[in-house]
Simulated assay, not measured.
Amino acid sequence: MTSPYTVAAVPMRWVGPLRVSGNVVTTETHVPLATYESPLWPSVGRGAKISMLAEHGIVATLVDERMTRSVLVEARDAQTAYTAAWSIEARIDELRDVVRARSRFTELIGVRHEIVANLLFVRFEFATGDAAGHNMATLASDALLGHLLETIPGISYGSISANYCTDKKATAINGILGRGKNVVTELLVPRAVVADVLHTTAARIAELNIRKNLLGTLLAGGIRSANAHFANMLLGFYLATGQDAANIVEGSQGVTMAEDRHGDLYFSCTLPNLIVGTVGNGKELEFVEDNLARLGCRVEREVGENARRLAVIAAATVLCGELSLLAAQTNPGELMRTHVQLERHNNKVKVGD
């Protein structure tokens, strides 16, 4: 049967290998990046090279995971909304049974709420196995909303999606509570490697991180973010692995830390909103299947383990590109000179080469 769509040709290359360890996986792997920004490949490659030279590579710690969907109900008045909110909190076990009746792989793990006037915003949080979980969360929330409307007096339907989730928007709530996988990556780079590979010092990177990522973002009014370009690596990785690319909006939230430790560089990227999955829509494409298999995410494991593996590899990829860019920006002219050289060269390379 002929496919109803074609696949857009975005140039993709594998870079690395990078070394990653931590509470999810210990591995060395190349990573795929699909992007039109061709200097991203060697930049991430430089960070990957450094990960291979550091004793433990990039240590990636998965600290939380949850997919969210918020619903809106209208109450007679604020007091009714308040009573309904605490009724929902008290019936969490009952609500978990409602979710289990709809899906083998979706689990309700938390409920939060906000009241504005007579409106009640309810944010459901789910575990969704190896799926990113957008549709699973919506299906479960639809069932929960119907159950609440039938069993709690004084409330009526508002919307199945209330923007308190928050999906594909940069918001404080996602930065605080997380949406998707929350991963912290850390790398300790020896002084000699900083000098020989990055052509800079730990002190200069740490100073630039404070002035650019922290103060610059503060002045710009950034929301729960202090990083240089998380979105670049995430988009390339998401496109190569069949993810919903629009989730780089909340995915780009996160914090970069850099410290001079007696000449060695401690470098860390915290990403609270990594939304990735290894099953679901987009994963049936042949190139995506091949990429996930090469990343080791097509192996039979406990439910959720392949998605966790993919998330920490994505987070490690982000650190590689973030470190390389910040190092380049400590040296006058390096960033633009490199972009001009690499983009002129890659303009001669055809898609598929």
Results as ranks from 00 to 15, higher is better:
residue 256 T to H: 11
residue 189 V to S: 02
residue 196 D to W: 03
residue 164 Y to K: 05
residue 193 V to H: 13
residue 216 G to W: 01
residue 146 G to C: 04
residue 183 V to S: 04
residue 163 N to S: 15
residue 250 E to G: 03
residue 177 L to R: 11
residue 160 I to E: 13
residue 175 G to F: 06
residue 144 L to D: 07
residue 157 Y to E: 01
residue 207 E to S: 02
residue 151 T to G: 12
residue 241 T to V: 12
residue 205 I to M: 06
residue 231 A to V: 09
residue 234 L to D: 06
residue 153 P to I: 09
residue 177 L to W: 14
residue 233 M to E: 13
residue 239 L to W: 09
residue 249 V to H: 02
residue 227 N to L: 03
residue 177 L to A: 07
residue 232 N to K: 14
residue 199 H to V: 08
residue 217 T to F: 05
residue 214 L to D: 05
residue 228 A to N: 10
residue 187 L to G: 14
residue 226 A to E: 02
residue 147 H to V: 04
residue 159 S to E: 11
residue 193 V to C: 11
residue 152 I to R: 04
residue 151 T to I: 13
residue 244 D to E: 08
residue 229 H to Y: 12
residue 228 A to F: 08
residue 169 K to G: 06
residue 169 K to V: 15
residue 151 T to Y: 10
residue 236 G to W: 04
residue 186 E to A: 11
residue 182 N to H: 12
residue 185 T to K: 03
residue 183 V to G: 08
residue 207 E to K: 00
residue 204 R to Y: 00
residue 199 H to L: 11
residue 181 K to F: 12
residue 151 T to F: 13
residue 255 V to P: 06
residue 191 R to F: 08
residue 150 E to R: 14
residue 158 G to D: 10
residue 213 N to Y: 00
residue 257 M to N: 01
residue 211 R to N: 00
residue 224 R to Y: 14
residue 191 R to M: 07
residue 199 H to S: 13
residue 187 L to S: 12
residue 214 L to T: 02
residue 208 L to D: 00
residue 190 P to Q: 06
residue 184 V to C: 09
residue 198 L to T: 03
residue 228 A to D: 07
residue 193 V to T: 15
residue 228 A to Y: 09
residue 173 I to Y: 13
residue 187 L to N: 11
residue 210 I to A: 00
residue 212 K to D: 07
residue 145 L to A: 01
residue 245 A to S: 05
residue 197 V to G: 10
residue 196 D to Q: 13
residue 142 D to E: 15
residue 213 N to E: 02
residue 222 G to A: 11
residue 144 L to A: 06
residue 190 P to V: 08
residue 226 A to G: 11
residue 169 K to H: 10
residue 172 A to M: 15
residue 254 G to V: 05
residue 195 A to G: 01
residue 155 I to M: 07
residue 173 I to G: 10
residue 233 M to K: 07
residue 172 A to D: 14
residue 160 I to N: 13
